[in-house]
Amino acid sequence: MNIFRLAGDMTHLMSVLVLLLKIHTIKSCAGKSYPCSLCFILLESSSGISLKTQELYALVFATRYLDIFTDFISVYNTIMKLIFLGSSFSIVWYIRRHKIVRRSYDKDQDTFRHFFLVLPCLLLALIINEKFTFKEVLWTFSLYLEAVAILPQLILLQRTRNIDNLTGQYVFLLGAYRALYILNWIYRYFTEPHYVHWITWISGLVQTLLYADFFYYYFSSLKNNVKLKLPA
């Protein structure tokens, strides 16, 4: 474990916490007769969270962590896997089933089809993998799918004119997590013998590049001290 990997995992964890915080705020705002301004913003506008992306992440973790009971790496790994599995499925549950959270979800804007991402990733995983076994193909599938799972969210952000702070932070933290993982791979490549994982690296690089555009607007909004807005 190096500092880049740890920092990457922590930003990933923070992104999940930001999302759970947002859901919690939406829940607790409802029913108040005089909502605070944050409640007002969250309840009156759509949440800006893409259910499609969240469902894809749940699928990513479900297929990647099949080894949770068979291969033991460390207590840290097992706990983190449980956290990511549990949080991704509960976020999906909240957006689909919780009556208040569901109301803040803008279904008409979030129109991306899962199918267009899942099928090519599955085919690619069947063709390009390190070992043709059930677990390994699904692990590879999860890498390919994770690389593109943010697309529905980025498209939704571009459509939603009003990006609230928490949604912006969420996407930023996810992007930071990917960038830190690249630093982790570079570090491991030079410090560990035989550390080569081409499939992980290339899909991870593609994933990080998808955030480039968002990062550009995120940092310029910080620099100019204005609210984050993506061009139409």
Partner: peptide
């Protein structure tokens, strides 16, 4: 050389 498939990352 034989590549061992090890997944120790998340």
């Amino acid at each position: 050389p034989h590549i061992t498939v090890e997944h120790d990352e998340l």
